[in-house]
Amino acid sequence: MTEPMLKITNLHAKAEDAEILRGLNLEVNAGEVHAIMGPNGSGKSTLAHILAGRDDYEVTEGSVTYKGQDLLEMEPEERAHEGVFLAFQYPVEIPGVNNIYLLKSAVNAKRKHQGLGEIDSVDFLTDVKQKMKLMGMDESFLKRSVNEGFSGGEKKRNEVFQMMVLEPGLCVMDETDSGLDIDALKIVAQGVEQMRSPDRAIVLVTHYQRLLDHIQPDRVHVLARGQVLKSGDKQLAHELEEHGYDWIRYEEAESA
């Protein structure tokens, strides 16, 4: 069997002396979509940020490999160049910086890393416009400052739009479905489905079954107290919806 695209082994991490991840294991193969669910404060965003290289967290034990490379050794921008993308739970506003300018800088930074020249402006614009359309975004968003004054749902769509343009190998999406209206949810789900590809892995952090009605996950994991406590197929999400997280805690206690 080939190596999984993302392999997390016994990951322990803390922030300001509080241990958040406590021996987390996870494997995601290329071509698969995994959903991560779990109660508030269980460490889902922490995991997402550690994968992207945020230095607020200290990894005290364990390893993370992406395409066989030691991810934890790499700078955030190197990870991005290698194809790691994080759709943020709370995308930050950058006043005065055009959305399209940021995106083009990002595309060119990646191309430079690949030894390619800057992207042709016309090609870029054509690609960008087509993908905006898919995300149901008006072209005026290109000229607006990054996330500034965007509604909650617009910010989330913008994240998926950026993801589509950057064509990453590993997509980590942190609660991209929160704050979306019903139509936007469908659009985002379609976007994700479209991103599904044999050479791409997608990790979705979500609280709601409703996203999984539109996206068929290959695996569902429950993260609690800094560990993956239970994994299963999409049926697990339905059971969680029905019984809540206590059900897992109960099961765990039973088996202990």
Binding site: E77, I94, P95, V97, Y101, S105, A106, A109
Partner: peptide, 20 residues
């Protein structure tokens, strides 16, 4: 961090934000 996550180096990111 947002800029760097998108692949933009720290120096270029500062530049981008300040120019904005």
């Amino acid at each position: 961090f947002y800029c760097r996550q998108r692949g933009i180096s720290e120096e270029d990111a500062v530049n981008l934000i300040v120019n904005g």
